[in-house]
């Protein structure tokens, strides 16, 4: 079982979690591993909370994981990060996009969006390995807001380096880029490449 890496991706419908998890599962396969991915379509796409599961390993059985079983949590939005904290294994790695999307329950329902300190404190109680990434700011600097998800994948790729379950797997930055290239239109290739590199830099620096 320890030969399996579990990822949980979460965010808000429309943020590009589907593409990101598609990339992630195919990177696992390209690295010579067994890989599975699961998500839910339909209602959840309409601005609601979305989650998607990706698993890599020598042999992967279940397509989804349960509470406390995610080795890596990739959150595209801060409130969704906090909502899904229970999935994170104690000591696991969290990559959190520094982005707040205010739900209607806050705008009109009088509920309160959690403060950054609250989010940091909740994560700190579970793991010291939390990385906030300015996905939107980096994407905006690159001139295309839609590549924020690739920035986050870049950060994730850097944080995966040296993971014990990946020993012997053929996984390099190029593996990631090849999979991304197959999924984006040619005219956006360069901006995606730079987004991935910037993300890697953001993920790699302490």
């Amino acid at each position: 079982m320890k030969n399996v890496i579990n990822f949980l991706l979460c965010g808000v419908g429309g943020q590009g979690t589907v593409l990101a998890s598609d990339v992630l599962v195919n990177v696992g396969l390209a690295a010579g591993l067994d890989a599975k991915q699961a998500e839910v379509h339909g209602m959840s796409q309409r601005g609601g909370s979305v989650i998607s599961y990706v698993r890599w390993g020598r042999e992967v059985h279940a397509p989804i994981i349960g509470q406390g079983e995610a080795d890596l949590l990739l959150a595209f939005e801060k409130l969704e990060a906090l909502r899904n904290l229970g999935f994170l294994r104690p000591g696991g790695v969290a990559v959190i996009n520094n982005q707040a999307i205010i739900p209607l329950t806050v705008t009109t329902g009088g509920q309160k969006y959690p403060a950054d300190e609250e989010i940091r404190a909740a994560f700190a109680a579970v793991t010291p390995h939390v990385r906030f990434v300015d996905g939107e700011r980096i994407a905006e600097e690159l001139g295309n807001l839609r590549v924020a998800n690739v920035v986050l994948l870049g950060a994730l790729s850097a944080l995966l380096e040296g993971h014990p379950a990946l020993e012997g797997a053929a996984l390099t930055a190029e593996t990631w880029m090849r999979v991304i290239e197959e999924r984006v239109p040619a005219k956006y290739l360069e901006v995606n490449r730079r987004a991935f590199e910037e993300g890697r830099r953001a993920g790699g620096s302490e």
């Binding site: 601005g47 509470q67 406390g68 739900p103 329950t105 909740a122």
Partner: peptide, 13 residues
């Protein structure tokens, strides 16, 4: 699972 206080729901809209 760690206790996270009640969070604003994000239903599909």
């Amino acid at each position: 699972a760690p206790e996270v206080g009640p969070l604003p729901a994000r239903p599909p809209v």
